[in-house]
Amino acid sequence: MTVKNEAVVDFLKTRRSTPVLQLGEPGPGRAELEEMLTIASRVPDHGKLAPWRFIVYAGAARAEVGEALAEITLEGDAEASPERLKLERERLTRAPLVIGVVSRAAIHPKIPEWEQIMSAGAACYNLVAAANALGYGATWLSEWYAFDERAFAALGVEPGERVVGFVHIGTRKEAPFERVRPELGDVVTWRGDI
């Protein structure tokens, strides 16, 4: 006999990302963050490899990364506008806290690399859900610097790692708007009768 947890079902049916510009202070404290990261780590992980890790960007470290992103932008475009450079400087300061989720997927004799990458994606999602469950707004973003190896040193990403995304966490300044969700008929293929 199954037992339905109505509170969890309702949470999952209404969970919503919060746009990064709608996230403000306060962010989570250390204990709440550690709880979020513990929850984020509870994902399917074939072989118990933990093929991902988290990089926490807090306080002044966020602005330091932003300065590096602005410098990389200038290297690629010496005529970058002041507005563009401001945007790059503020990439990780738009929310009180940002967590990078990094895939450490590697060739393994039994566990496909693809499964390891999906485990990292699940960790990203669990982190967003954990932040929401603890009352914070969160959004999972991957922007140009997630894919540009010139930014990896400033971000703390090691050689051979790949960025899965950046989870921005803070207090919602306003209720997030609901977006259109796909119709099940458009995304589900039924094979067999239930």
Rank of each mutant, 00 (worst) to 15 (best):
A133M: 11
M36Q: 04
M118Q: 13
T73Q: 05
A130Y: 04
E25N: 14
A58I: 11
G165R: 00
W140R: 05
R181P: 03
G66H: 15
G24V: 11
A7C: 04
R89D: 14
M36C: 02
S142M: 01
A58G: 08
C124Q: 02
A61L: 13
S81R: 06
A154Y: 15
P112N: 08
E67P: 12
A120D: 06
E79S: 11
C124F: 02
S103H: 03
E34K: 04
A80C: 09
L74G: 09
E88I: 08
E115C: 13
D10E: 15
A68S: 14
R162C: 11
I111D: 03
K86M: 10
G76I: 11
Y57D: 03
E158N: 15
A120R: 05
K110N: 11
V167W: 04
A60I: 12
L49Y: 02
L74I: 09
G76M: 11
K48Q: 08
H168S: 04
E34R: 05
V98K: 01
V188T: 03
G59A: 11
S81A: 12
G192T: 08
I117L: 00
E183T: 07
I39N: 03
K48P: 04
E161F: 09
R94K: 10
I39S: 02
E149S: 14
E113D: 09
Q116G: 02
E25T: 12
E83M: 14
M36A: 01
V65P: 13
P51L: 03
W114K: 12
L74P: 04
A130T: 05
I99R: 00
V167D: 05
R91T: 08
H46E: 02
V180L: 02
E149L: 12
I39P: 02
C124E: 02
E6M: 14
R30K: 15
A63Y: 08
A40Y: 03
R94I: 05
L23K: 05
P26W: 12
A146R: 10
E88F: 10
L85V: 14
K110I: 07
A130N: 05
P44I: 12
L12P: 01
V43F: 06
F177V: 15
I111E: 07
V167G: 03
F177N: 10
P182D: 00
A58V: 12
R42F: 02
G100R: 05
R16W: 03
A58H: 10
D45V: 05
P112T: 07
L127E: 02
I107E: 00
V163P: 06
D148I: 14
P82M: 14
I55M: 02
A120Y: 01
E178I: 09
A133F: 03
G185R: 07
G29K: 11
I99N: 01
N5T: 06
V128F: 00
A133L: 10
R94Q: 14
A7H: 10
P176Q: 10
